[in-house]
Design a protein around this nucleic acid. Structure first.
Lengths: 211, 211, 211, 211
DNA sequence: AATGAATGAGAATTCATTCAT
DNA sequence: GATGAATGAATTCTCATTCAT
């Protein structure tokens, strides 16, 4: 019954069209929290609604289904990541620097956000549909961005030619995802992820280096 | 509620002396197979029964619940797998060879344990309770086995000292897991995974190499 | 709960002097159209709103509920139809001509009342409450109108005396209803129905003829 | 909770395979009764289950959906009708006798069964899917059987050539259906339907007669 | 008056589990 | 032990209706 618990303290930004997206975000945040705590399947839609302070039906105004809700958490994050990566890549001098930055960005987005990390690494795989979606356009776009960096390194002669860029991209994504998983499952150490990112980058860079 | 592991007459009884446990194994194998294909939640108990060639109710003579069935796969088989990995490690001459073998084993390329590898990769994360209660400790044990290989390599001077073994293990696990996931979900290209596995090992080995 | 027929200023108000009732009529016509197409239950209130070019909530300014909307179609329009049928009957010279005209009218071939005829045929039976409470009496009144035509034919000696007028009316209604239903459900063949209507009339007329 | 209320007093007929179809019939009868009373849409599946003395889920062992349940009532009846009509047709001397018998059979099947008549004439049209099904194979087969009788009459020169047999069949079916409808809506008069059947047949026969 | 975002009661259906045979 | 028909609790999603703007 209590209205607008998150009524957005973010000051009065734009005059119009903020309320609606507010609600979408509220649902998304609530879902991330509850999914992380109980797991996707064990969470009832009504629990998400309650946590978001909206009616059950309201969720379906913003998301087609419970599955879509989970997928949206993932895609929203990939969107941000993809945007950040694309924005920064050009400014960096070479493939090495780019790969390092990708590592930092991917882990940085989860660092300090246990719930999100848990959902991305654990709940995400609880939805068969999402799993199929794992090869979804947005995710693939991200992998291809990584692959492009590797291709760039191969083109300028600094990276080995014998690795398939897209497979390497998958391995890098997976490596970072694996770190996030164990981090999410273990005790919380804010900043720990970022620190590790440098090491992973270092190993991969040396591993990809042309001899 | 009644405890029921139904160890079953493994000695006397029938001519071959293993009839009862036969059925339990059949169910376990069938479940591993079907879970690997469709995921734990998407699989109906009746599908496991059908695949095992028994009636639905029969499953409940051997396992308390669907969850217990998944847990039993872990209890009965993951331990063996983990033990096998450790035993193999010892037999191998150096850290490089060991890391390569880890690659092969995790991707289930040998031993006909492909389904089991997939259950671990896909179904593992589908039961929150299972994940936290059973899988997490074993998962850590597995990671430590990998970490030990890396420590060994550092000790004998072939691997870099500046990487934290457990973090490297997490990254390696994640990289392989990510590849296996992509592969398990897409159309089957048996050869492709094996080739990729070799590449990943090569990258990691070069990446970990002491200069 | 509040009674609300909102008769609306039909005189003064706007330049054209019919704005408010305009909207009520628009909704009523839109509903007739959509109900005719999809049936009462399968039609969403929002679909009626869209077809009428008003907001969902606006419908509730003019009608208490979705059911009332259907009832209003009957109240506002079926009476007119029934009256029109009766008026027409009087103007026609003999029972044969009248029966032919009944055929045409019921099949909604004239007056642009096709949708209304379909609502009566299809939606009529979809609301049990509506059927029993509103439609049944009017339905009987309609049957009696047909029966009166037959009685007239018997009185002037052109129709057989051995058929019970009301039963014949029921049969005629049913025959036309059955044809309309088949026609409404299948692909539209405007000409085909008209041709069929003529045949049915012809058969019934010959069938009722006194020898 | 109470088991087997209708446990079949029909004596011990066949040794096996009677119980299951018993349950199907029980559900079918219960549904006919409840649908007739409350209408199809207003009836909850759980109400049918309760009336049949089975669990909600049991209904889905015998019928795919609530819609299928309604359709099955109709189709079972059409099956009986079709079978009876086909069995008898050959033995009858001419098209006139056949058409008379069809009339009797169609109405006779409903006479004395108010619930069934109400479901067939009213509830049947409450399901959009069923309406589509109105052109379903079984129903069409029945119409074609009637049409064949008419064709036969045209072939031997006793019926008019200018009517389309299938349209005439629809009109005849509709006429009988219309009689059943008003009978179902009005007060109960057992035997009334059968009596009327003769009149309708007489009108149609004279109407179809070649001059 | 008009809007349409939000509501939340309500219902069909699924499927793990049981138990009479 | 084995069966599989029957169970019924549990849950997503829909959609008529409301009401703040």
């Amino acid at each position: 019954m209590t209205e607008s618990r998150f009524s957005a303290p973010r000051a009065a930004s734009s005059p119009t069209g903020r309320k609606a997206s507010d609600k979408r975000d509220r649902i998304l945040h609530a879902a991330t929290h509850v999914f992380a705590r109980k797991g996707f399947h064990a969470t009832r839609v009504s629990e998400v609604a309650k946590a978001a302070g909206v009616a059950d039906g309201t969720i379906y105004l913003y998301f087609k289904s419970k599955d879509e809700l989970l997928i949206s958490i993932f895609e929203d994050r990939v969107d941000h990541l993809l945007e950040a990566v694309r924005r920064e890549m050009e400014a960096l001098p070479n493939a090495q620097a780019r790969l390092r930055r990708i590592n930092e960005l991917q882990l940085g987005l989860l660092d300090g956000e246990r719930d999100l990390a848990e959902v991305i690494t654990v709940s995400l795989r609880q939805s068969t549909r999402l799993l199929k979606q794992y090869a979804a356009p947005k995710f693939l776009a991200y992998l291809e961005t990584i692959a492009d960096v590797i291709k760039g390194g191969q083109a300028d002669g600094s990276f080995r030619d014998d690795v398939v860029p897209l497979d390497a991209a998958r391995a890098i994504f997976g490596a970072l995802d694996g770190l996030a998983l164990t981090w999410a499952l273990g005790p919380a150490h804010p900043g720990a992820l970022q620190a590790t990112a440098g090491q992973v980058a270092s190993v991969f860079l040396q591993g990809l280096e042309r001899r």
